[in-house]
Design a protein around this nucleic acid. Structure first.
Length: 270
DNA sequence: CTAGAGTCCTGCCCGC
DNA sequence: TGCGGGCAGGACTCTA
């Protein structure tokens, strides 16, 4: 489910229930997701106060007054359920707040993860240290991409999914940003012109910004934590639209790159 | 270093 | 209605 806009939407939704709240109870329903839960997770979080929430790339951050931050990644199928009406077999971690709110981290495929990281050391934490710039921050520039792509023969589609080059993009928004900027997904990254990169950067920022404003893209199981559906999926121009007509009239194509589906228009993307 | 394939896991949808 | 195959928003590990 979750690329940057969905994680951002999730974090904003969680903040309404967690910001400033004390965590009264922590329940773990299994020992691991992709990795084991931190052994001291329950002990550290129980009784802690949430001092703020944040996001880095596709990771959500729950800062606590224990000087530890709970870092969660939603993988492919992760989501938070707020005040669930009934328990679900994939609710793996459940938080109850001092005000009585119940928040469940639900992840059917269990590709997600939860870590506990000293808040002061977040930037140097292993998983964060190697991440590329935030696409909505100052660090993503045509020059940055030009340097990162220099000499690379891999298709630009695949390099944009590399979190060490840009942090937070996933399959949907890469397809959409390449379409918006008129770049073929199979073009060797090192051969994409400066002019095209100068179109790509704002295309990435626009598509992410528009999606966040729409509450993210709801597919299958994703909903915002409050249960509302994000409606950006209705704005996809190529993703998931194989065989449909592009705005130019040509059919949207699908091909597999690096094991992932790419959707694109042969006529609009050169 | 780079590139490509395989792996983790469950659920849903489609065709037979 | 049941069953098998393919596919899914991610990221890691292994091999060449």
């Amino acid at each position: 489910m979750p690329e940057l806009p969905e994680v951002e939407t999730t974090v904003r939704g969680l903040a309404r229930y967690l910001e400033g709240e004390r965590i009264a109870r922590v329940t773990l329903n299994r020992a691991d997701l992709r990795r084991p839960f931190p052994p001291d997770l329950v002990q550290v979080l129980t009784g802690a106060r949430v001092t703020g929430l944040g996001r880095r790339a596709k990771y959500g951050l729950i800062h606590s007054d224990r000087e530890q931050t709970m870092v969660f990644h939603l993988g492919m199928s992760g989501r938070w359920r707020i005040e669930p009406e009934a328990p679900d077999r994939h609710d793996h971690l459940v938080l109850e707040t001092g005000s009585g709110y119940v928040l469940a981290l639900n992840d059917a495929r269990r590709f997600g993860s939860v870590d506990l990281v000293p808040t002061a050391a977040l930037d140097t934490w292993n998983a964060f240290a190697a991440l590329g710039p935030e696409p909505l921050g100052d660090g993503l520039t045509p020059g940055h991409l030009h340097r990162a792509f220099a000499g690379r023969l891999a298709p630009i589609k695949q390099l944009l999914l590399d979190q060490t080059i840009v942090a937070g993009l996933g399959n949907i928004y890469v397809c959409e940003a390449l379409f918006r900027s008129g770049i073929r997904p199979d073009k060797p990254a090192g051969r994409v012109s400066r002019a095209a990169l100068a179109r790509l950067v704002p295309a990435i920022q626009d598509v992410l910004g528009e999606s966040i404003a729409a509450g993210g893209s709801t597919i299958r199981d994703y909903a915002q934590p409050n249960g509302e559906l994000g409606y950006f999926a209705a704005s996809w121009q190529v993703y998931g639209r194989e065989g449909e007509a592009c705005s130019c009239g040509a059919p949207v194509l699908r091909r597999v790159q690096g094991g992932r589906s790419t959707f694109w228009c042969r006529k609009c993307q050169k």
